[in-house]
């Protein structure tokens, strides 16, 4: 059972009300256990539904990574929250779940969070020579050197 495997890795599990929230169990984990957690989910036939991030530097001085695992058929959503310090890196789980490859690239692109061990960490949605990370709360669109003043 996934719950048993996870209880060894992440003791901090909260059952959430599925009818209101849309997922079942929420865990708070430290970032360096993520690869083991991913392995546990892989062995239990879960898939990585998405990874996303929150810029919580104002609230908790941290970026919060949100991993959501689910299984086909009867939904069983497990959400892993992992807070990392603004200048820290997180381990990549792309080796376990290739789906994480692009999600991690997107988080790198949008938040500037780096992932250790990612096969090819580069921008995905913004252009390669873009600077800045758009989804940061204090983001200001950098002036585009190629755009003239009269362009709307």
């Amino acid at each position: 059972m996934i719950a048993d495997k996870l209880s060894l890795l992440v003791p901090d599990a909260t059952e959430v009300q599925y009818d209101a929230r849309g997922f079942h169990i929420q865990y708070t984990a430290s970032a360096d256990t993520l690869p083991q957690i991913a392995d546990a989910f892989l062995s239990e036939n879960f898939h990585l539904e998405m990874i996303t991030c929150q810029d919580r530097r104002e609230n908790d001085n941290a970026f919060r990574l949100i991993y959501q695992f689910n299984q086909y058929g009867t939904p069983q959503r497990h959400v892993i929250l992992a807070d990392i310090a603004p200048d820290a890196t997180a381990p990549s789980i792309a080796a376990t779940f290739p789906a994480a490859d692009w999600y991690e690239r997107e988080i790198f692109d949008m938040y500037g969070v780096s992932f250790d061990g990612h096969p090819d960490l580069k921008r995905i949605l913004m252009e390669e020579d873009y600077f800045g990370h758009p989804l940061l709360k204090d983001f200001v669109d950098p002036p585009n050197p190629y755009r003239s003043e009269d362009d709307a």
Binding site: A20, R21, G22, F23, E49, M50, I66, Q68
Partner: peptide, 16 residues
């Protein structure tokens, strides 16, 4: 946090 997921013509469309 809320997650809601619908069946779009292409697959699971989820809103977090």
């Amino acid at each position: 946090d809320y997650y809601f997921c619908v069946e779009s013509p292409r697959g699971n469309f989820g809103m977090y």
